[in-house]
Amino acid sequence: MHAATVSRFGGPEAVEITEVPVPVPGPGQVRIKVAAAALNPVDAAMRSGVFGGEGERIGLGWDVAGTIDAVGPGAGARPGDRVIGMSTGHRTPLGTHAEYVVLDTEAVAPAPASLDDAHAATLPLNTLSADQSLALLALRPGQSLLITGAAGAVGAHAVELAHLRGLVVTALASPADEEFLRSRGADHFLPRGEKPAPGGWDGVLDAAQLGDDASAAVRDGGAHVGLWPGREPAPGRGIRVGALDVRADAERLAALSRLADRGEVLARVAATYPLAEAAAAHARLAEGGLRGRIVLVP
């Protein structure tokens, strides 16, 4: 079968389509025939060597939508089930940008019945990242939350989920995104480029990596969560500072899938590319300006 991999670090040109064996599911695992797989910034980071692995053959892709076609012992799943899932391994030889992928059952959930495969494939990493970031913040209903980069894939889902949790949400993004973000649950809007008021919020989810500027917006004793471990601002003023280390969670992913079916979580596809054109897809991702995810289709 074919898979997108890298054996050297670099720009989009480093992405190769290679021939690899079809994987076999082990105990507690399922094999998914990939119908669609989203391309995320973490894939660009892996391609460029952020996570190391020089000289290794590294598979790309974290998100997947498709159909179970084989199960390992004790998997508790059925061939033919339509699912979404997330691979969280860094530097694994095979990711989801492939024709088949094997995942643990704890990383797989039923796909939203109302969405096509391309849209469903955008959900796992981004919705779980938003959901787990909000859990780290541990804010109570009625408390205030600033979300930077709110129009991005993680940020927009964070707006939706924070609204459902009863938080008072301020979205920071381009002025062109204000109407969209208010429609997804933002109570207030802050244009990108305008510095957040110091100490103005109980918590900040810093999806745009503003760092110290975002941390300064947190009140004394509040909470700050970013999306990249190791890039957290220095703690101070009693602020809890954390960074997301996203993990697979079948139960939460199933709940998020149901929210998508109810229209409370919106899947956005910016463009689709054939798997064979993965390098071109990486090049488009690098250009920026996307609203939604690029999706690869085998």
Rank of each mutant, 00 (worst) to 15 (best):
G185R: 04
H188A: 06
G230N: 06
R165W: 04
P198W: 09
V225R: 03
A223N: 06
A173I: 00
G199Y: 08
L161E: 09
H224W: 14
A197C: 06
V169M: 15
G211N: 04
G221W: 14
D177F: 03
A176Y: 04
S133C: 12
F189V: 06
L161G: 09
A150R: 07
W228D: 13
G152K: 03
P196G: 05
G199L: 13
D202Q: 13
D206C: 08
D212Q: 15
V218N: 02
L137H: 11
A153M: 08
P233I: 09
D187K: 12
L227S: 06
P191F: 08
I147N: 03
A162T: 01
H224S: 13
V168C: 12
H157N: 07
Q209F: 11
G203W: 01
V169S: 07
A138D: 14
G222P: 10
A223V: 12
E194K: 11
A217C: 15
P229S: 11
R219N: 13
A158F: 00
P141K: 12
E160H: 01
L172G: 00
S133Q: 05
V218D: 06
A214Y: 03
G211R: 00
A150L: 11
P175N: 08
A162Y: 01
D177C: 14
R231A: 14
D202R: 13
A214P: 12
R184H: 12
A162P: 07
E179Q: 15
L227M: 13
A208T: 04
G155A: 05
V204M: 09
H157S: 07
P233F: 10
D220E: 15
V159F: 04
D220W: 11
F189A: 05
L134P: 01
S183G: 12
L137Y: 10
A151T: 04
R140A: 14
